[in-house]
């Protein structure tokens, strides 16, 4: 297990290096000098930046500076916000995005496993039909529509109650987090429910479940120890990619609900061509996703004994 973990972590570091390299060369392939954008900076800052990033040096040397800076955790200075460190910006906004994303994935995972198990147990009966219908809806409706209608229902709910039960937008308190994370998790939850359902249906008639019945175990124990535990395995394997989906969905939810997250900031940075922020954010997001996937794989190893020997 330890060897496996170390191996995966090394793979992760190499992958992040690749992402950083791809980002660097993508940004340097942009036509023109990044500093000659409309957001003309004062000559002093410009000189400062040129010195700091070695923009007058050869590309390879710039790449080296960029890599060493990034390895020491320095993402540089914002191009558009004077004297603001990208690290500060990321630290401030990433916290928000991560909180939102983790709440959403937890909600999606638990919801998906629960509803998937329910549909499989009530196969072809009313609860199954209703949930399957909702699931099909859930995977077909784009996240921004969920976000828009989520917000609309909050408005209507508050109107109807006569007071603000949950805020319509913004960030800060627990109340602010509920609706955006629900909305964000909804699509993924639908997807996981579907997966869990088919996985459960396969397991319901598995040989080892028949063995468990032949042992005379109570139905609840068979469900808990034999069906659920095995049916969850495929759900765990897709949790990694799901985190990526949730992260991108987060962009929309942050926009619609006016949440000061990194996604919203990234879109803004792109519009303003704030190169250092764009590079820093891309690499950070990439690293986050890579290591989340690794974390999920390690958790999978804990649940499924068969992986541990690899």
């Amino acid at each position: 297990m330890l060897r496996y973990t170390v191996k995966r972590l090394i793979q992760g570091v190499v992958t992040v290096w690749f992402i950083a390299t791809a980002t660097f060369f993508a940004m340097h392939a942009v036509p023109g000098d990044p500093l000659t954008s409309d957001k003309a900076v004062s000559p002093e800052i410009r000189a400062n930046l040129e010195a700091r990033y070695g923009l007058d040096r050869p590309l390879v040397e710039q790449y080296w500076i960029y890599l060493t800076n990034m390895a020491s955790g320095d993402f540089g200075i914002s191009f558009t916000q004077q004297n603001r460190e990208v690290n500060d910006i990321i630290a401030e906004h990433f916290k928000v995005s991560a909180t939102l994303g983790i709440l959403a994935i937890v909600f999606a995972a638990f919801g998906g496993i629960l509803w998937g198990a329910v549909t499989a147990l009530y196969r072809n009966r009313a609860p199954d039909i209703v949930i399957v219908f909702l699931v099909i809806l859930g995977i077909s409706v784009p996240s921004f529509v969920f976000a828009a209608f989520g917000q609309l229902s909050v408005v209507k709910l508050n109107d109807w109650l006569g007071f603000t039960l949950v805020p319509v937008a913004g960030w800060g308190t627990v109340q602010h987090m509920i609706v955006p994370s629900l909305v964000l998790g909804l699509g993924t939850m639908a997807f996981l429910t579907r997966l869990m359902r088919s996985s459960m249906l396969e397991i319901v008639n598995a040989d080892f479940v028949r063995t468990a019945r032949a042992k005379g175990l109570p139905a609840t124990r068979i469900f808990r120890k034999h069906q659920l535990r095995n049916a969850i395995l495929p759900v765990i394997t897709v949790l990694g990619p799901s985190i990526a989906a949730i992260t991108t969905g987060g962009f929309v939810v942050e926009l619609v609900f006016a949440i000061p997250g990194l996604g919203r900031y990234f879109v803004q940075a792109v519009q303003q061509l704030d190169y250092t922020v764009i590079m820093g954010t891309t690499v950070l997001y990439g690293a986050f996703l890579v290591f989340m996937v690794i974390a999920v794989d390690i958790v999978y190893g804990l649940v499924d004994p068969r992986v541990r020997l690899d």
Binding site: F18, I19, A22, A26, A244, T247, F266, V267, T282
Partner: peptide, 19 residues
Amino acid sequence: FVVALPFLLFMILFRILFN
């Protein structure tokens, strides 16, 4: 490696790249 790239971020980067 290409799979590991954050898809939508790179889609947006390409937008800048293609100017």
